[in-house]
């Protein structure tokens, strides 16, 4: 476990050594800030609804960009060989990198707290949905980080890793908007699979164990997939 913590620290620091962290954070703030504030004064409501509504789509692009390098870069550089011949297990490696990516997502969300503070000065902000929204955002980020990590573990090419990760996250995000096209008998099941459906519950301020379970199981299944894919390369 302590090895996983060391790997986490190293990976998290690496984000901020290279320009990736700064580029991704600025891009994320630019996109969310623009879409949130352009309609904010038109709506004339002191809530962060629009910000949270857009998160699943923005995350589908941004999170795979954070995770794409985690394994692909190591495969490509060959440093993976060094990593695996140190006294660490696959579990340490996967867990360390995963937590680093989630921490990076949290670091990216941190500046957006300024939005809620701004809004609270402008009107009566209901903090319940905001807190729920941030909890949900971290969970959603964790699930997408898991998917991104899996995508990164199957290829040595970072761009391919990004595209695979984005495709999967995008499908999960849009699934409950596509239900119209899908067979009726599977509707309930497919709705449950959609990330947006669960996220919108949490961001209303309702923390339901089914939604928590959904995000945690997506993260777990994809991390297990990454674990298997690494073992296969061994």
């Amino acid at each position: 476990m302590s090895q996983a913590i060391r790997i986490f620290r190293k990976e998290f620091a690496t984000y901020f050594i290279s320009p990736i962290a700064y580029i991704v954070i600025s891009f994320f703030l630019l996109v969310t800030g623009w879409f949130f504030f352009t309609t904010f004064f038109l709506r004339n409501q002191a809530s962060l609804r629009t910000f949270f509504d857009l998160l699943p789509i923005t995350f589908s692009f941004v999170v795979p960009a954070i995770t794409m390098r985690l394994f692909s870069e190591e495969f490509n550089l060959g440093s993976y060989e060094i990593l695996l011949t140190l006294p660490v297990t696959f579990r340490d490696v996967v867990l360390g990198k995963f937590v680093a990516a989630v921490a990076m997502v949290a670091a990216m969300l941190l500046p957006t707290v300024a939005y809620s503070i701004t809004v609270s000065f402008l009107g009566q902000l209901d903090w319940g949905p905001v807190v729920g929204g941030y909890v949900g955002a971290i969970l959603l980020g964790a699930a997408y980080c898991g998917i991104g990590l899996f995508a990164s573990s199957v290829t040595r090419n970072q761009i391919v890793a990004f595209i695979i990760g984005m495709a999967i996250c995008f499908c999960l995000t849009l699934l409950d908007k596509m239900l119209f096209f899908l067979p009726r008998s599977m509707l309930a099941f497919l709705e449950y699979l959609g990330a947006d459906y669960h996220f919108s519950n949490i961001s209303k301020g309702i923390i339901d164990s089914r939604d928590l379970l959904y995000f945690l199981s997506v993260a777990f299944v994809s991390l297990y997939g990454a674990h298997l894919s690494l073992q296969e390369k061994h």
Binding site: Q3, A13, L77, S79, I82, T85, L86, V88
Partner: peptide
């Protein structure tokens, strides 16, 4: 173990890298 052509993390400083390895070791 030193693999062929020493594939190390390019972005890290030598000092940070050695410290990291010392930690893992």
């Amino acid at each position: 173990y030193l693999p062929e052509s020493a594939p190390l993390y390019q972005d890290m400083l030598v000092y940070d890298y050695l410290n990291y390895v010392a930690g893992i070791r």
